[in-house]
Design a protein around this nucleic acid. Structure first.
Lengths: 352, 352
DNA sequence: CTGAAAGCGCTTACAG
DNA sequence: CTGAAAGCGCTTACAG
């Protein structure tokens, strides 16, 4: 490091220097010798300002680093150019990509997105909601941590888009990844790569995501005229431990299986461990596909895992689009299901 | 799901309903039959308001769901009660816990923290900085993605605390996890649990974190009168792949080692794989300790990994404290090193 | 105890 | 082309 790593010390000897206040338009006007009205017009590119005057004002503004006080502008405009992203995602795994997608959709220079974390807690949600509303955000994106419906925030003075977890009020606008079609996607990929003896290790059956994925898997197998190997889906939880245990049971009962769909990447990591222990080659003997496409888990595996991405960035992008339209007065309502994306890697296709 | 999962449809038939504007203090005053001045005082608990008048105003305000426009209040107060958390953390792994710690320290009811993601990009950082400054945040916490010094944002109209990545200007206030002492911690734990043949698989040597951890490890081994097994630390990158490869090399060369310190949890996961493959019992024959304590990696491992937590929540909490003091005029400067926390699990202590 | 006035920092008709 | 005035929604001395 280039910086001396001294213990921090307070500048006790330094008197408290009153921080210089931000320069105001009045300061600019005074220094440029014009009225604040003219200064405002000059800075905002309005017509009917003499070029020389404008230049003078702009120069002064730059010289004193004038930054217009957005609060005052918002007060007048009745809009703040701000959107709140209220999330319940404790890990940031959903909210950061959703935030990115939303920012990209809003485009720079226009809308700013600010993230607040309510930590799955209704009290905190209410608190942040008030803070955001009091600061007059133009709209809200509410991100849940599960795909089951959550209580609607009700009628609010600004539009709301629910992402990942839909609102329980069909009048609200909700965006949810389509887990059923995600399940279908997994099967179709395995079938397309020649697998016929496919089993499913499910996640926590208390989650809609686990059940919906299973539903899609069964539907696609049925459509392909293939059985679900093992008969019933084994449900458990989302852990590697469960993946290991379930894979052991399955392999004991169904030695002929040639593909495993795992309810999450964590489960797939566990299952992979079991296959390695038994000396079963992946993907040559058994292929593995899973859901979530969680970078850290998927790329560290050997072989890397084929996984179905929930497309959080797209979710964020579309949420921003819906919100923009709603702010403009064009509301959308109902639950919109968003397609997921298959990401092929070595666990299903040799050398991929 | 209880909600009908229809494709979203636009309310094309519904006319664009102009959203009712937020009620203002003027509305409250009018309905209560008082002046806005009195309404303001009544609502803000000021003295010299007749109890009956106050009650009437409060009732009206509640009835029409009056929420004071914070923009106007902030304009007057010159403070917004808002802090910006400007992060470069692409995964949210640092920023979410830091955000939580900061929120906890600020306490509810006072300061709100809004997170913006600059994605490691100086242009975006500048953009968000302007957005935040324009909205007159009272202070900033800037979170980097690496522990090497980063360019200072320079003199800003509000105080800044740099977290995780320190500023290169010693006049700024920076908070960084103490990776040297983290390395020491790992060794001391292993020594305390009876290990004497300790090796280190380092992360990416281009990272200060990798080098500092190594430094602490060497210092502590030296202090304990023990050698670093393998002679030189093997540096590579942060991946599981590297952990597997390095562990293979180490075991070939140093069959007598009884403990492995891995530069990250990912590396540890890889090393663990190699130990399993060779039938080496963990922790009975070889113990493994690592850094980061990344939940998903650490608890999924078998056995679970002893790891050193960078204490992001504490980092956030202290950043908030420093920022609060700075906002009050008591600035702190220099780089402050924050202790990390050992979390013991089964990879070093049987049955832990 | 109550209210008219001034003002926070800005913008926008409206006169000149 | 320029500036005085009114106003966004609120608060705070200051008269009454």
């Amino acid at each position: 490091m280039d910086v001396p790593l001294t213990a921090a010390h307070e500048a006790a000897d330094t008197p408290v220097i009153s921080r210089p206040r931000n320069p105001t338009l009045k300061d600019v006007a005074r220094l440029a010798g014009v009225s604040v009205a003219t200064a405002s017009k000059a800075l905002n590119g309005r017509d009917n300002v003499h070029p020389e005057t404008r230049q003078r004002v702009v120069d002064i503004a730059n010289r004193i680093s004038f930054t217009p006080n957005t609060l005052a502008q918002s007060l007048i405009a009745g809009q703040t150019g701000t959107v709140g992203l209220l999330t319940h995602d404790l890990e940031g795994r959903f909210s950061i990509p959703i935030l990115m997608g939303a920012e990209d959709a809003f485009g720079s220079g226009k809308m700013s997105v600010f993230l607040c974390d309510a930590r799955g807690d209704a009290i905190r949600e209410q608190y942040h909601l008030q803070a955001l509303l009091g600061r007059r955000v133009d709209g809200l994106i509410v991100v849940g941590s599960r795909t089951e419906p959550r209580p609607s925030l009700g009628a609010l003075p600004v539009p709301v888009v629910y992402a990942y977890a839909p609102s329980d009020d069909p009048q609200d606008c909700s965006l949810v990844p389509d887990n059923v079609s995600a399940g279908r996607l997994a099967v179709e990929h395995l079938v397309a790569t020649g697998r016929t003896r496919i089993a499913h290790i499910g996640g926590d059956p208390g989650y809609d995501a686990a059940v919906s994925r299973d539903e899609g898997i069964r539907a696609a197998l049925h459509a392909a005229g293939l059985p679900l190997v093992g008969g019933d889906t084994l449900f458990g939880n989302w852990s590697e431990q469960w993946g290991r245990a379930a894979a052991q049971r399955l392999l004991d009962q169904e030695p002929g299986l040639d593909a495993l769909i795992c309810g999450s990447d964590q489960i797939a990591r566990g299952a992979l461990d079991t296959l390695h222990e038994r000396g079963i080659a992946v993907p040559e003997q058994v292929a593995i596909a899973s859901f979530d496409n969680w970078e850290i888990l998927v790329t560290g595996a050997r072989p890397q895992l084929t996984s179905i991405d929930m497309s959080f960035e797209t979710l964020g992008r579309i949420a921003a689009e819906r919100l923009t339209r709603a702010i403009e007065g064009q509301r959308t309502h109902g639950v919109e299901l968003l397609p997921c994306r298959l990401t092929v890697r070595g666990s299903t296709v040799l050398g991929a």
